[in-house]
Amino acid sequence: MSQPPDRNDAPNPLDPFGLWKQSQQAMLESWSKTMTEAVNTEAYAETTGRMLDAYLTAAAPLRKVIDQTMTQLLNQLSLPSRGEVISIAERMTNIELRLDDLDARLDGIHRDMERVVGAIAALSALTATPTSATGDGDAHNGAQARKRAPVSNRGPETKARKTTPAPRASTARARRKAE
């Protein structure tokens, strides 16, 4: 997190503050090196390990007593204990997992529907093209195709959008397509 000192700072020998700063920098660097070496020793690891262990040994029974007392107190007040709240939170996460699966399925259905719509549109275009290209002889069919094409292009997609609330994924895809 700390930045290394800028080594391009050349001190001015006539500047007393500069010299003081230089000596301060040197002292800090030396101190830092000593301390970094100290915390990397076996002795430091041993000492901090013992201190933490002593603290945890003292804290464990105290915490147990506090937990038991609080649970009894909350029980008498007809309030849920921490354990009960935690249990509800865990159940909620399980429900969220199932909702996430449902959401993914909806995304999948939407994707499939878009593919189907695309395929239908392509098919309509395919069937419409030869009829319009054949000239006057097929004027009747061409007119029918022209009538049909917009419907088949628009229909299922519009229906889908109306009947199924569009998830954000589809909205984003639509936005991207528009862009």
Binding site: S2, L28, W31, M35, T36, V39
Partner: peptide, 9 residues
């Protein structure tokens, strides 16, 4: 791990 840098410098 770097006490002087983090707590002083």
């Amino acid at each position: 791990l770097k006490p002087v840098e983090n707590y002083v410098t």
